[in-house]
Nucleic acid binder design. Structure first.
Lengths: 247, 247
DNA sequence: TTAATAGTGTCTCTGAGACACTATGTG
DNA sequence: CACATAGTGTCTCAGAGACACTATTAA
């Protein structure tokens, strides 16, 4: 980067040099990411089993501390990359959780993000014990509330910290967003049928949708493009494959 | 100000540090509140003129550093109370701004909140130079983008830091929310006419609304209650006064 | 051919916009 | 009474739900 010719210091620069940043006590700031995917017709979240206290052996969202030389968004991208091997996925900031006692060790804020991915893109990282657990939501619509997770046998697993609340808010946010943006295809492979997309929406919303109006709305949204190809491997008439429109 | 840039940690150091949050450098965390009201048919925001560098003499959102013994929400309530004398108003978290260089002094995250108030409830605090400035939005609908402010003569005033972006996001959020929640009455006195409510919605959305369907939607929303009283001081037929339904 | 789903055509219902018409307090 | 706005009734239009009907593939 080219150096600028030095100028006489302005009043602002003089002030900056005398500023003492250490006079305020500061909290730790972590970034936690709710990585959601679709497995066997159910919404799943990527979790990591804690091997240390507090909440030892409970499950937690992948996260990490924000570094001083990266933005919050960059920290979230780094967490996705290092904990799940994921790049180039749908990622948005969700909410910042700041209760005083949300971490028993010390004051830690959590800036939560959520990501939607196609599960096969996740590369398990060997450094930690991670798993997809099924998301269970006890409330309807956009009521809001916390969410639970269950393992492959259907037994409930406990989440660490305030992560049930974070997970619940992620579901609430996605449900709201789905009403006006068909983000469902973020959870699907590049080519998918309208039936698959409808199943994704139904799974996220927790209710069934009208087939005819779903099809009409999707086709008129301008966000889908027919490929001319047909699905295969089905016992019945194959449906046409669509892809999301280039942005 | 010579700042030592820490070496990138080795994998082992990263692993060890991840179990001891106190080893990580921590950012300062501020809470900034976008306090919006309606004045003379225009959206106004409560701002404070800075009397220190950086951005001396520019206008900024009321804010303050989060303390270690209060939650983020409590910090926002404290800012509202101490900077505007406001209590019991509509307040929601907006977004957390975390660009590395958003404050030239040091690393400061801003957890932004927005509040909707009836302007007469604000008690000017004499400790700082504060004012209501009119909000100017250059984009339509929920496109998003930054926002500007002008003084009572219509001249543009500059905002400090990334506050144009924060203000813009607050407008975007409110516009979206208004589509399905009639939050407009938060900006009005306890009793108001449907015409006043419609004007509030139109001002926020930046477009005119159909009178008939606005009236129908509001009355069928179940969030309003007729008082039986009529407005007064008009040259024409007075309208009935409504109040928001007790929640 | 049958089973099962893909995809189309059309009717109905509901809510928003448009607009005409009546109601009513003030000057 | 005139004026200006409040508030109602009704027609139209567009989108969603419902449903019947045709299309297409595998077994």
């Amino acid at each position: 980067m080219p150096r600028l010719k030095p100028k006489p210091p302005t009043a602002e620069e003089t002030f900056l040099r005398s500023y003492d940043p250490s006079q305020f006590e500061r909290p730790s700031v972590a970034v936690d990411v709710v990585v959601l995917t679709l497995l066997e017709g159910q919404l799943h979240v990527l979790l990591i089993e804690r091997d240390e206290h507090p909440f030892k052996e409970l499950w937690s969202l992948p996260g990490g501390f924000m570094r001083m030389d990266e933005s919050l968004d960059q920290a979230a991208l780094r967490v996705l990359k290092t904990k799940a091997g994921l790049e180039g996925v749908y990622l948005e900031q969700l909410y910042t959780f700041g209760a005083v006692d949300r971490d028993p060790r010390m004051r830690i804020l959590s800036v939560a993000y959520y990501a939607l991915v196609e599960h096969s893109r996740v590369t398990p990282q060997m450094t930690e014990k991670s798993a997809w657990l099924a998301v269970k939501v006890d409330w309807a619509g956009e009521t809001g509330g916390s969410a639970r997770v269950t393992d492959s046998v259907g037994d409930q697993r406990l989440l660490a910290f305030d992560h049930p609340e974070i997970l619940g808010m992620a579901i609430q946010r996605i449900r709201g967003k789905l009403e006006y943006v068909p983000i469902g295809f973020e959870l699907l492979p590049g080519r998918f049928t309208l039936r698959q997309l409808q199943e994704v929406h139904q799974t996220i919303l927790g209710r069934s949708l009208n087939k005819d109006s779903f099809r009409r709305k999707m086709l008129s949204s301008g966000m889908l493009e027919a490929t001319g190809e047909l699905e295969s491997g089905k016992d019945f008439r194959p449906a046409e494959l669509y892809r999301r429109v280039r942005g």
